[in-house]
Nucleic acid binder design. Structure first.
Lengths: 203, 203
DNA sequence: CACATGGTAGCACGACTGTGCTACTGTGCT
DNA sequence: AGCACAGTAGCACAGTCGTGCTACCATGTG
């Protein structure tokens, strides 16, 4: 047996190089060569792991969502429902450099969907995942009396989901001071959750 | 004097070809050649009007927002504030093929921002434009008693803006039946505006 | 009818693309 | 010690890219 490389680890390493290229130069700059250079590998090595560019791109983009998914899972053990809600939803917002990069990559995925059908499936899965998280959060909040019992949960899920994704998008576009944008993002989300409380039950 | 061509009209014609290429094959497929072919022109003709690819892209993307802006302006003469609000905000949602295409192009612009600084400025302008529209709408609704007078308008503007852009994004990603997605989008927005009404004032 | 000129056409260049393919290297088991 | 083979390296090909450039066409004015 020759030298054995941790296949999965190598793939993730290369995927992270893809991310860096996209963040620095845009998705159009992703090529087997630029990625290989970024990873400090030969083109042949990259192609050994990802035979085609399509596989390279799809794996890299799927990993973006996978990483976020893992982070969300770490919050499900928390006690206070409202605390869980904010912790989970904050994972979908560009509140630090890591999450900001993820959002940027996410937009790149959406933009490339027409060109690459595989990305459409990947993004659709992430979409349903975030939607599911919003739904769970609202369900839990309602069960613990932090959301009006008569609320239309389907509609509220759609509303919260749209709000979260919109806030995420604005974190990318808004030119303002990062910390100001960050604070406003958190406050808007908090106020939205407050607005769902039963009447008379202030914060 | 030789044959004279309406410069502005020609530029818009070419820009629309850029749009079609992006929608069909993604922004990566935009090249002077593909656009020229799409427009039924020679490469030389395109380059006569747009000397560089950067100018081609920037003009085409700026025109997307300009078209939307013109559509919004047509609603400002309406009487009922709530009617204005919905009409204006609906212009930012992918409720028909035209607006859906605009959203898709908008995402392409955002995704290409890191690669192309000019697009960042263009998108920032559109961002402030939509924000301004949200603000005006809320102001008008509050003045006519359709929004709680004690509402924090800054925060509510950010919330509405995020909601609208999030709903727009979902119109692109959601795989479901177009008419179902469309109806839900409209309903979520309507419910949101309802939720801002003064207490006791139902629809 | 001429002719100046806006518009069209397209060749040429060097750089870059994805992918097929072969040659080499070095390791870990027999 | 020796071998099989995963992993590395990189050449070659045909295609596309943006852009500089020249040659040509057609038309409105003098």
């Amino acid at each position: 047996m020759p030298k054995l490389i941790d296949h999965e680890h190598r793939k993730e390493e290369i995927a992270e190089s893809v991310w860096r290229v996209i963040l620095r130069e845009g998705v159009a700059a992703v090529s087997v060569r630029t990625v290989a250079a970024e990873a400090g590998l030969a083109v042949g090595s990259v192609r050994h792991v990802f035979p085609s560019k399509a596989e390279l791109l799809e794996f890299s983009m799927a990993l973006v969502h996978e990483r976020a998914r893992l982070r969300v899972q770490r919050h499900i053990g928390m006690h206070d429902p409202r605390e869980i809600a904010e912790a989970v939803l904050h994972e979908f917002l560009p509140l630090d450099d890591t999450r900001r990069a993820e959002m940027e990559l996410d937009v790149a995925i959406i933009a490339e969907m027409p060109a690459h059908q595989g990305l459409r499936t990947i993004r659709e899965k992430a979409h349903q995942g975030i939607r599911g998280a919003c739904h769970s959060v609202l369900l839990h909040l309602r069960d613990t009396g932090e959301v009006r019992p008569e609320a239309d949960l389907e509609l509220e899920t759609a509303r919260l989901h749209a709000l979260v994704d919109g806030l995420a998008l604005h974190g990318l576009v808004d030119e303002g001071d990062r910390t100001v944008v960050r604070d406003r993002t958190v406050r808007v989300l908090a106020e939205h959750l407050d607005s769902l409380r039963p009447p008379g039950q202030g914060r």
